[in-house]
Design a binder for these strands. Structure first.
Length: 355
DNA sequence: ACTCTTCGAATCCTGCAACA
DNA sequence: TGTTGCAGGATTCGAAGAGT
């Protein structure tokens, strides 16, 4: 069973799309056009609703679904015949369109609540593979820890210092030789804010080197490419693909629901991007932060002649504590979504304002 | 050669705390 | 009060081994 939050946001969105009067009406008798949801899952939803949990999530998602039903760019008020819920899924294809709902077999909808994260990739797949999907897990595994790959000396220094301060016995000289238990123990040795200052300094040092070398490596990889191929890499980061889809969700994830603005976007295809913009280039800049980070700036000339810049960044981080496993590369969109050429705010019905 | 099972790795998602 | 940076947990993948 997926997480309750997922269930609530995705299915309340689906309920809104059907045009039923309210969440409660929909839950009392789940509309037949919504398929792929088990009785058990509807039940879990009803229980959560009855307990008054996640009221704001229910309402925001429901209203988003309704907005999609009414939108000029969406269903234009025509009721959907089939709303397929994809449920728990991970597509076999790398960098797929993140689709949660499919309406009438055609409209693809991604539900994304309170997240600026465009994707989590392995650093190897993103930088060496440019997200082309040609690098398998095995390739990544053979290449080893990304930090060691791009900053071998700083990595070795950090590990040596880790062993010096270690609170667990028998850590090997080579971190790659740790077994699962040791890896877990090592990653737990210094929880948040208990990192000895010399270790923190060594980590900062390594982060800076990783940032620089990762950026250099990405630039090397992108350098020989033609402009169009460079733009394709950017599209993969932005999840712009061959099929248009919609994102329904909210910005921000603060507890105060009123601060969360609904996000309703139509994501176009490369063809759409070229209708409104010309790609001018992509700059990769290493950043010295608490953890390794690359800033990406894309330059465009819009069809009205104005120039526009788009900001993203990539964090490369150990997601499970220091030496606790392979690092991951998280991609964030820093510019407002509506500034992305190819991302279009969902038009409300003529003459009306969006909720 | 094919299917089933297992388990570490990869990825996705959520929480917390410091800061503005 | 809202945002950002960082961290950690949960979930699913998929390669390799076991079984047929």
């Amino acid at each position: 069973m997926p997480r309750l939050t997922t269930l609530v946001t995705e299915l309340a969105t689906a309920l809104g799309m059907t045009g039923v009067g309210s969440v409660d009406v929909g839950l009392a008798r789940p509309p037949s056009e919504i398929v792929g949801v088990s009785a058990e899952q509807w039940n879990a939803l009803s229980i959560a609703r009855g307990a008054g949990e996640m009221q704001a999530d229910f309402e925001t998602a429901f209203v988003n679904g309704r907005a999609f039903l009414d939108a000029a760019d969406g269903l234009r008020g025509r009721g959907a015949r089939v709303i397929e819920w994809k449920g728990e899924h991970k597509d076999p294809v790398p960098a797929p369109l993140p689709v949660d709902l499919r309406v009438d077999h055609v409209y693809l909808v991604s539900c994304k609540y309170g997240s600026k994260v465009l994707g989590n990739h392995s650093p190897h797949a993103l930088i060496d593979g440019l997200l082309e999907g040609s690098l398998t897990r095995q390739h990544a595994a053979e290449a080893g820890d990304w930090f060691r790959l791009v900053a071998p000396e700083a990595y070795a220094d950090l590990w040596a210092m880790m062993r010096e301060f270690a609170t667990v016995e028998g850590l090997p000289a080579d971190p790659a030789e740790m077994d699962v238990a040791q890896r877990k123990a090592a990653s737990k040795m210094f929880p948040r804010s208990e990192l000895p200052p010399p270790l923190a300094a060594a980590y900062t040092e390594m982060s800076a080197i990783v940032s620089r070398h990762s950026a250099a490596r990405l630039n090397d990889r992108l350098g020989p490419l033609k402009g169009r191929q460079r733009e394709r890499f950017l599209w993969r980061l932005l999840r712009i693909g061959t099929a248009p889809y919609f994102i329904l969700g909210s910005s921000g994830k603060s507890a105060a629901a009123h601060s969360n603005r609904p996000v309703r976007l139509r994501i176009g295809t490369p063809w759409d991007v070229h209708q409104v913009s010309t790609f001018r280039g992509l700059r990769v800049v290493p950043v010295e932060a608490g953890q390794p980070r690359l800033n990406l700036v894309a330059d465009y000339t819009m069809s009205d002649g104005a120039s526009r810049q788009l900001a993203l960044h990539v964090e490369i981080r150990w997601s499970h504590g220091k030496f606790g496993g392979a690092p991951e590369a998280k991609v964030y969109l820093d510019s407002p979504p509506a500034h992305v050429p190819g991302y279009f705010p969902l038009e409300p019905p003529d003459g009306q304002f969006a909720f």
